[in-house]
Design a protein around this nucleic acid. Structure first.
Lengths: 153, 153
DNA sequence: TATTGTTATACTCTATAACTATA
DNA sequence: TATAGTTATAGAGTATAACAATA
């Protein structure tokens, strides 16, 4: 006998929203986000700060404007995310020699090792959340989502 | 020659995040959400209020608790969403005869026709956003996302 | 003139706890 | 004792505008 929660959900699962790609995207994202945030919490990170740290650790040396664009954040939000990471000694701001208006954000050694540890936590949480998909299905999903996430590619 | 915006994104597109299912989910959702909200604005709705109205119009007669669960919202958030829709004459709260603690939320005639109009707007916006996917790919994506969105199904 | 980063501000969303009425 | 709805409130996230430094 299903719990009340399941019964309730079952009743609405025949609704039109269940075929709505945007709704499914929102719900799947909410589930992944809360699992991800829970997994990252032990490292003092959230999805946002993790993604900034991860990009800074990747060696591409992104400017804050590039981070804002890639993560779909307002530049002012990037300021406070980088402030936080910098105050914890995880990233540095370096003036871009080619454009002195711009700050290049680079992970410190501590930042790189935290990013690696956080990535492991995030990945194992993700595997738990997506356990009902086969490896093939997960790959297909990743490719399709990438097409939506980067339409101009 | 690509615009600076494209160049910037291209630089980061080789990053590890680009293979991260949770990140792609977040970015695709952000894109779909902003397109959806823009399309729904002409009806005085947002994604949240639209989904509540849509479920109320579907005839299943959900309680507020069922709505909260299905939409992954806190019950107190559902209160204000229903308050707003009710004040505009789009839904009614009816006490559930079987459990007088519970309110069943049902769309009025005006609510049903607004829901239908809003759904058309939302769907054509969605088609624009997802134009680079074939019908087959979109169906595959919908099925895979449904598995993530409703893991217990 | 336009752009990068920054600050300030207001607004929305989210999470929590407490209360009431029913069960 | 537990649950549905409600209220209040604080915190996080989001959006906007304005400014200094630089292009």
């Amino acid at each position: 006998m299903p719990k009340p929660a399941d019964v309730a959900a079952t009743g609405l699962r025949a609704s039109a929203l269940t075929d709505d790609l945007s709704f499914l995207l929102a719900r799947a994202n909410a589930i992944a986000l809360s699992a991800g945030n829970a997994a990252l919490a032990e490292h003092g990170l959230k999805a946002r700060s993790y993604s900034v740290l991860s990009l800074a650790a990747d060696g591409a040396g992104p400017s804050q404007r590039e981070l804002a664009e890639f993560l779909r954040l307002d530049p002012s939000q990037v300021v406070s995310l980088v402030d936080d990471l910098q105050s914890r000694g995880l990233v540095e701001r370096r003036p871009d020699p080619a454009d002195r208006r711009a700050n290049v954000v680079i992970a410190t050694d501590a930042g790189r090792s935290l990013a690696a540890a956080a990535r492991d936590s995030a990945r194992s949480a993700e595997e738990r959340v997506h356990a009902q998909l086969s490896a093939d299905e997960r790959q297909t999903l990743t490719d399709l989502l990438r097409a939506l996430a980067f339409p101009d590619a």
